[in-house]
Design a protein around this nucleic acid. Structure first.
Lengths: 128, 128
DNA sequence: CAGGTGGGTCCGAAAATTGGACTTTGTCGG
DNA sequence: CCGACAAAGTCCAATTTTCGGACCCACCTG
């Protein structure tokens, strides 16, 4: 559903507030052609919504649907991975302010027990 | 780094304990050719490690490096998204047991303040 | 009326993926 | 010793996707 090239990057841009086609092209560097196709499939799949934000001139923007918003943990986890493993000497290109008073430190926990999720404590079981 | 087709699926299989080439082909349905290429790039990028687990016959398996293990939140978040938005009537194909006594309910929090992460409370800031 | 912006489309070239056949090395049962 | 089987790939021609750049149209703005 979100595995094609540019799909998650486009979704990230929408999360960052860059909802317009040209803005996404500029920020991601995707070919306009490919991005247009990708946005179409994401809309078809119910992850993005294309809405007009101005008539005269007719202009569109992309918003996340509820299902799209649910991808936030995926995007943020990838962002954190990049910050940790790929960032250069001067740190990550983007900081995330949480509640306007501290840096967001994303971290996966189990809602049931409250603990941090460690792969060693998780056992996959095929559908019973 | 992990955006090409089959990359995250291969990584997922390794997390699930399916570390052998043929096993991954069977489970993911990827073309052998493509999977072989993908595994090669993932090894080059330091996400997987290819190690011999038997001489005579010579056999290899793929293990996650530390950087690879750090992708766990990404894989788990995607898995949860799929469970929520794509699972059919009989539920998700895979259950995750946490500490052998309850179902894992993955959930992104901020380590700094302990709260659940809500996109509305996060403000991206370009590098200062 | 010239220039700019937003949101695309069109196209030929280049790159990646596909599925199936084939290979190599070694094990196992009879 | 023979035939069957497994693991881990490789090879190849036929699709599919992506790429990058040019182009288009409607609408402002000075």
């Amino acid at each position: 559903m979100v595995g094609e090239k540019w799909a998650l990057l486009a979704i990230r841009e929408v999360f960052l507030g860059n909802r317009r086609f040209d803005e996404m092209v500029r920020r991601t560097g995707a070919p306009r052609d490919t991005l247009a196709a990708r946005l179409r499939t994401l809309v078809e799949r119910g992850i993005l919504d294309r809405r007009q934000y101005s008539e005269h001139p007719t202009r569109y923007e992309y918003r996340l649907t509820d299902a799209g918003v649910d991808l936030y943990p995926v995007v943020i986890s990838l962002l954190r991975w990049g910050d940790e493993h790929l960032a250069g000497a001067d740190g990550p290109p983007l900081l995330l302010q949480h509640h306007d008073d501290h840096r967001l430190v994303p971290h996966l926990t189990c809602e049931a027990c409250g603990e941090a999720v460690d792969p060693r404590h998780v056992r996959p079981v095929r559908r019973p």
